[in-house]
Design a protein around this nucleic acid. Structure first.
Lengths: 222, 222
DNA sequence: CTCGCATGTGTACGGTGTAAGCATACGGCG
DNA sequence: CGCCGTATGCTTACACCGTACACATGCGAG
């Protein structure tokens, strides 16, 4: 007979922080962040809940970890390119990543922990701004302004009832039950959301360019 | 003896949805949103947890309700004034309210429910933009861009380790434990955060004016 | 072989939101 | 005045959460 313990049937890949985080991201991706519990995560890995604690200190460490996993997915364009297009690319990449992991944007905004991938991105953006010739002070503010647009815009888009094809139906019912005479402009706005304009990259990039051009102007006049 | 039930000692103000929401806001203000549980809220009101369900359907309704309570605190400047200063005032007021209720900003971004005060504010801003002469399309985008800045910037500020006096000490330790040679620009940025610049209204209003001026320019050239 | 350590398990505790049934108090009716 | 339906509050109970703690088991080093 086979050796008693080394059950050949399943090679039993050992757990690891990496595997835990990977599974956590997958779980959050398909069920939302509220579906990510230690018990469900353990089950997903074929293990008991407490076993996870051999690889992570607590759930917070998992949350910080999965934020870092998604943060590591965003592109940091190489130096040398024009600063505005570099930041533009990074902003768009950041947005894409957050749309791919819809739970990550709000989670990322609600915890201040600086894990490596996030630090790397922040440092990259600051360096890019600084090397673009912005003053120390302007760089400081520009960073927050650009980040505000990226995070704020993406979060808004993620929280909208959804533009995904048939789910527009859901939005129309939402529309019908709000008093059109009392909030006419808001109703009009929601209606505009339902027009086919595949995503809101349009508005996102419009605002982004507004901000970047303004910063450039500020740099040149100051 | 006194009548048996009508215990004179405490007139027993009856519960009401309003009283529940008011207490919920107070609880969240002093303990953060995670301190807001049905049991604690009930205790605060001198009542048992399940009694709350006579006045609200579930906890979500409480969350939507307290968002509306804070939303009703923001100023909607009267018509007639210059659109940029009107929106400016509203933006600053919105930011102030969110700084007063630090839990409200992220909560407000993570639920799409349109309760009356929020709808009123959204409608007001859209109307203001439209009457400023922005095209339908530009109004649509401008709304999201302005909102992104307000919400994104405020959220960023709320999540920063804190600029409050001695808590700066906490931030300095945070600073010391991150590798200064690896992320030099980020370290510099955090250091700038610690300089006395009471709040970040500076950056907030700078970015806001950037956006508003750009929108005006776009209106006039299109 | 045996020991120690890393890893996974089982059980338990205090917390959460809330469903169901019971107790009580109040307002309108005879 | 007395009665009763309804609104309000209380009690108990359930499923789920994060995680502390004690224990079982496997593997590599001496």
């Amino acid at each position: 007979m086979a050796r008693k313990t080394n059950a050949r049937a399943e090679p039993r890949i050992p757990l690891s922080k990496d595997r835990v985080l990977q599974a956590a991201v997958a779980l959050a991706d398909e069920g939302g962040i509220e579906a990510l519990s230690m018990r469900k995560l353990a089950k997903e890995l074929g293990v008991e809940a407490m076993s996870l604690y051999n690889h992570v200190a607590n759930k917070d460490e998992i949350l910080d970890g999965i934020i870092d996993v998604v943060a590591s997915e965003v592109d940091l364009p190489p130096d040398g390119a024009d600063w505005k297009t570099a930041i533009r690319q990074n902003a768009i990449s950041t947005r894409d990543v957050f749309l791919r992991h819809p739970w990550a944007c709000s989670l990322s905004m609600s915890r201040q922990g600086g894990s490596s991938a996030r630090l790397r991105r922040g440092d990259w953006m600051l360096k890019t701004l600084r090397e673009a010739g912005l003053s120390k002070d302007l760089t400081y503010h520009a960073y927050h302004i650009v980040e505000s647009h990226i995070l704020g815009f993406t979060l808004q888009q993620l929280n909208f009832p959804y533009s995904g094809e048939e789910l527009a139906g859901l939005a129309t019912t939402f529309l019908q039950q709000l008093p059109a005479d009392e909030y006419p402009d808001f109703v009009e706005h929601v209606r505009q959301h339902l027009e086919p304009r595949d995503g809101d990259e349009g508005g996102f990039e419009l605002g982004l360019d507004l901000v970047l051009d303004s910063l450039e102007r500020l740099r040149d006049t100051a």
